[in-house]
Amino acid sequence: MTTALFLQALVSGILMGGVLALISIGLTLIWGVLKIINFAHGEFLMIGMYLVYFLVAKMGWDPYLTLIVSIPALFLIGVVIFELTIRPILKYPAINQIMLTVGLSLVLQNLALIFFKADVLFAQTRYNTALTIGSVVVTSGKLIAFIGSILATFILYWLLQNTDTGRGIRAAAQDGDAATLMGIDVSWAYLLAFGIGSACLGVAASLMIPFYYVSPTVGEFFGLIAFVIVVLGGMGNFLGALAGGLIIGVTESVGAAALPGSLSRVLVFAVFVLILLYRPLGLFGGKQR
């Protein structure tokens, strides 16, 4: 591999890693507060991407304008699905919860197949301009997606650290009974956490549409990879998910440039297993979220 190719892969990986981090932060927030892995996380993203696609391709919206719709829409979808399906099963064993969210992902995927067909859709936008920095070429859409993802991540982190609502959510996550005794409505905190975790996917969907295709199965990859990143970062750890996102993004991208076929996915999981061998609780496992 030449230096130029490596640099190109590295930069592309970092840019995509930022978006992966944002997607994973939604998942890690939900895990941190509710101790539930939402295996339908990727499918929520898929729904968000269809929504954004239609606004951009059919209604002619600017992709970044769709944020005002995609964020509240995904928040609402998260909240409704949480109330209808996940809340009733919160007290039951983890295996039941896994079955539920895996089942949810299958249902959503197949509903998308019925409504949107299996076609792979791509929205043409004006954010495909190539920017050249030295030997590295990036599209404006990818650059904006990276900056937007990192920005969204830090805004969310700041809100969780510095607002009363954020403190309430963290308290509910650390000790539900103690939070109740301090007047915090824990079931409200759960709902908010699930809604916010899902709303992250609204942001990701709007940011990805200029450079990523949409199909009913697009969420499969992202759901799985987000799970890997969450584990890698230390379950429920915010900054861990950010670091994990960047590591996986770069591994995937450099791997794709260096290895034939889909071996880069193998590399991703090899790195995952290696890191867990040495840090079984993840990069930031067991430390502050």
Partner: peptide, 21 residues
């Protein structure tokens, strides 16, 4: 509560703030 049940990963200040939300 018994055994205090503080929020372990929050600072002293945050523990105090979180009770007055």
């Amino acid at each position: 509560p018994e055994r205090r049940k503080l929020f372990p990963e929050m600072t002293v200040y945050e523990n105090l703030l979180v009770a007055s939300i």
